[in-house]
Computed example of a mutant assay.
Amino acid sequence: MQLVPVSLTYFLEVARTGSVSEAALTLNVAPSAISRQITKLEAGLGVPLFVRHPRGMTVTDAGSRLLAHARRSEAESAALLDELRTGRGADVRSVTVACSEGFARRVVPAAMAAFRGEHPDVTFRLDIVPRQEATRRVAEGIADVAATYAMGPQHDVRVECAVVIPVAAIVPLGHALAGRERITLEELCAYPLALGSSGTSQRELFDIGVQLEGLTARPALVCDALAPQYEFVRSGGGIALVGDLGDLDEGASTDGVAYVRVDHPVFRQREAQIQTMLGRRLPWAATQFTELLVSMLPGRSSQLSGGARPRSDPGRSPRPAGR
């Protein structure tokens, strides 16, 4: 059973897949039925919702606004149905979090543990996904909150908090750079490096910085997962990079490595963000957890230096941000 009108359900699936035929396969209905509903919806609203291309469809500006509304309606309807079916109503206390891997190492699990210390009846689901996927899941109501990195404006989500996170080099204990407060990109490039793939924001910014400085960097290891990079460093294979989500404060005792800040302005183009769905009223547990997560984000108290900002107005696009 669904509470969202059929026309909006069909509209949502065409917007997601970019194709009437793909949407028909997913929904197990005839393509003609979807086409009729979309045409009827456009006629009723008096505006086109899609731009038709030879190989697919993309939403118009009006379609984008309706898409945001439809996503909110879908998410809230699903939550209501779950409450009605389980009979637990307001007692349902579960929170789904999507985050990129860097946040999953310490910040998000620590926030979950602290929250359950006060509210042991609340349960969590944690999905570790690429940064863009975390944002998509919140925008589509799959997750309640996302903790991720971003570069550039975020139009499809509400940015509860955004903080510029410094980048640190991970070096083996006893390394020549261990104990240094800061190092330059030039010093970093003198050693074998373990880096993420070119699709990650950190690697993108690293490559820009290297190009600006006229440096040459040849990664010894390319890997998007953090665990292999840490073991590579601990085993003496080279140096890796990580966003400093509290790692420098933790010190070497927990990870068996040392952290050294990398000093270059290029890395300031990326922000760590806590994101929720635009216009959605989150359940109590998700709202309270989001506030706790914001408070635990490193650098959250540094507003005077411009390092953080509070949640943005739902009616406005956030400022440019950054894995």
Rank of each mutant, 00 (worst) to 15 (best):
Q2M: 07
V6W: 11
Y10C: 01
F11Q: 01
L12P: 08
E13A: 13
E13W: 08
V14C: 06
V14H: 00
A15Y: 02
T17L: 15
G18Y: 05
G18T: 03
E22G: 09
T26K: 09
T39G: 08
K40L: 10
E42M: 07
E42K: 04
F50H: 08
R52L: 05
M57N: 12
A68I: 11
S73R: 10
E74R: 12
E74A: 14
A79H: 14
L80T: 11
L81K: 14
L81Q: 15
R85S: 14
T86S: 02
T86V: 08
R88I: 13
R93I: 07
V95H: 09
R105V: 13
V107A: 05
R116H: 05
R116N: 02
G117Q: 12
V122C: 01
V122L: 00
T123D: 11
T123Q: 10
R131K: 05
D144K: 14
A146K: 00
T148K: 03
T148P: 14
Y149A: 13
A150W: 12
Q154C: 10
R158T: 14
E160W: 10
V163P: 15
P166Y: 09
V167N: 11
V167E: 11
A169K: 13
I170T: 14
P172Q: 01
L177N: 09
L185Q: 08
Y191G: 05
L193C: 12
R203N: 12
E204Q: 12
L205Q: 12
F206G: 04
G209I: 07
L212C: 06
E213R: 13
G214V: 06
T216F: 11
P219S: 02
P219Y: 00
V222M: 03
C223K: 08
L226D: 11
P228Q: 05
V242E: 15
D244T: 05
L248I: 08
D249M: 08
G251M: 03
G256T: 02
V257G: 02
A258I: 00
A258F: 06
A258Y: 04
V260Q: 02
D263V: 05
V266S: 01
F267K: 09
R270D: 07
R270A: 15
G279T: 07
R280M: 01
R281P: 07
T287N: 15
E291G: 14
L292S: 14
L293D: 15
M296T: 06
P298C: 13
G299D: 10
S302W: 10
G306Y: 04
R309C: 07
D313C: 08
G315Y: 07
G322E: 11
